[in-house]
Structures are given as structure tokens and as C-alpha cells.
Amino acid sequence: MSAPLLTVKDLRTYFYPGGGKVARSVDGVSFHINEGETVGIVGESGCGKSVTALSIMRLIRAPGRVEAGSKIEFDGKDLVTLDDDSMRRIRGNRIAMIFQEPMSALNPVFSVGDQIAEVARIHAGASRRDAWKKAVEMLALTGIPAPDQRAKQYPHQLSGGMRQRVLIAMALVMNPALIIADEPTTALDVTIQAQILELLRDVQQKFGTAVLLITHDLGVIAEMTKRVIVMYGGEVVEETSTPDLFTSAHHPYSEGLLHAMPRVGDKRERLNVIPGTVPPPTAWPSGCRFRDRCKYSWERTEHEHPPLYEIGPGHVSRCHLADEPERRKDPHKPLVARRSIDAS
């Protein structure tokens, strides 16, 4: 098998807000993405998922920085040490990003066509005419009706869903090898979210683009990804194939997330909760970072930081339970044991 498209190794991104504090927002994250693959990162606010994305794009600004020793390999280059010029050539060209809030990601004083065309002008050196043609073509591709008219409109004249299509069009102009989508549908209504997810799936199939999908929504993960990374406390706590996560999650945090979620189709019953809240990144607990909120924690979790244990092929979990499985008093009940009726 060929080398992965993107390899992140021991990524640490710290913020120094002053007063001698250090926020270890991303703290030793490693993962890889193969060409054409869709990988999900799931976690709650403050888990470090967005900072991971920004670190890959090298969009971390002071007082934050990617610490020495972190490695982000892409196309055989280390993005951490790459010079600014080469990095600019990669951004928007080989790696594109889609943000949560399409309104703030677009410039209000330029037409959306201009903004899409600009990407082609910067990276492909296209002429004004060609770039505009390309912009209209990309808008058509993302399913915007009357694209040549829409291209002349400004961001505020478009709906939220339309704007997100524009951002996707912008991301696709240079046919990038990787798209990082940071909560691309969180700001949208469900019916519009369904449209956008379908579009993302379509373009991914059409262009064979790899997608790193960052979300807090396990539903989106289930529908979009093949492999999933669960983050908590700035670390990867579990990584496995998506079906595996839903049938046999190992880490108590993943388990907790799955059970805490109300889902369509569940009758009314009490939701399981994860007690407490995410600790601030300036004060991760010692040992296991999840121990304060974990129903299994015992004294080993207090002083020994768990490594990523191998649970099965392609399945790792940062939990000492892998070592002492008998401590799982209340064995995991798979949530998705039943197969859907329509699948049979």
C-alpha cells in the first residue's frame, strides 16, 4: 500500500494566554488519512478537534503555536517546517478548508463569483475570463440553480445553505487532494444539512478527494465516514472503523457519547449522561484525562497516563481497561446491534 496522503505525528499545539498559563489544546495527536478516504474526528467543544484542523492548515496565530517535534507530512513535505511561500501554494490548492460559519468565511464586499475566481487566479494563474468561467462551472457543480446569475451576487444575498455551497465550490476549484471540513453543517437546518452532506458525498466520489470531517454529531459521522477518531482533552482517545465505533466502542468516553445522544427512533427513556464538564485545556487532569468523569476510574488512572492500546485490527483506545478488562463492571451493550430492517 502506498504512503498515506497525510500523516500527523505527535502534533502538539499549545496556547500561551499570558499569566504563565499554557493551554495544551492539542497534545500529542497522531493519525493518518489515505488518498480518497473520509475520516471523521468527533468530540465536544474544547477537545482540540478544530485546533487540529487549523494546525494542519498552519492557521494557528499567536499566542498559539505548533510545538517543535510535531510532524505533519503531506505530499512528502513536512508542513510544520515548510516555508511560508510553499505553504501558501498548498493552502486552497492541495488542501482546502470548509468552515462552520459560511458568512464569516466569505468577504462581504466581493461577489461570490469573484471570490471563487480568485482561487483559480492565485493558484492556476488563470486569466480573469477563464477564472470567472471556472467559478460559474464550480457553482453549477455544487447544484446552485442559475449559476451565472448567482456568481454575480454577494454573500448576504444568499441563504446559509447556498453560502456553504459557495464555500464548497471554492474548495473544489483546484481539485485538492484533501478537504478539511470543520463542522460544515452545524450552522444549517436539518433539511439543508441533508443537501450539503449529499453534495459533499457526491463531490468526494466524483473527484476522489480525501475528506477530514470534523463534527460533534455522531449521526454525521455514521453517514459520512469510514474511519473515525474520537478526541477528548486534546488527545486521540479512540480510533477505529466507523461501524466498529457504533457496535463496539471501547473507550468509556466514546461509549458515553453514544449513550448520551437522543436519537430518532428511540422511545422515551432516560438518557445516560457523562457527569461533569470538559476540563479547561490549561488544567488537564493527571493520568487519564477522562478519569474525573469516568464511571470506571480506579487509582491507576490517577497517576498513569494511558497509552493507545491496540484493541483489534485498526482499533486503538486510550484506556487502561484494555489492560484490565475485568474492571468493566457493566459490560458494553452495543447500541447498534439491530440491523436496519430495510437493509435485510
Binding site: 433539511t191 441533508a194 449521526g219 457504533f246 447498534v336
Partner: peptide, 25 residues
């Protein structure tokens, strides 16, 4: 019907039959 079918379901085994509404509100 469309609203119900649009909600992403956290079950990778569920086939993706979905009513996708066209256009905006």
C-alpha cells in the same frame, strides 16, 4: 416526512434512503 428523513442517524448500517428537499425555504 422530509424533516424526519433528513436527520442524520447514528447508525452506519442504516441505508441512506432519504427525501432531500430541493431549494431553500
Amino acid at each position: 416526512q422530509a424533516l424526519l428523513s433528513a436527520a442524520p442517524v447514528p447508525d452506519p448500517a442504516r441505508t441512506r434512503d432519504r427525501i432531500v428537499l430541493q431549494g431553500d425555504v
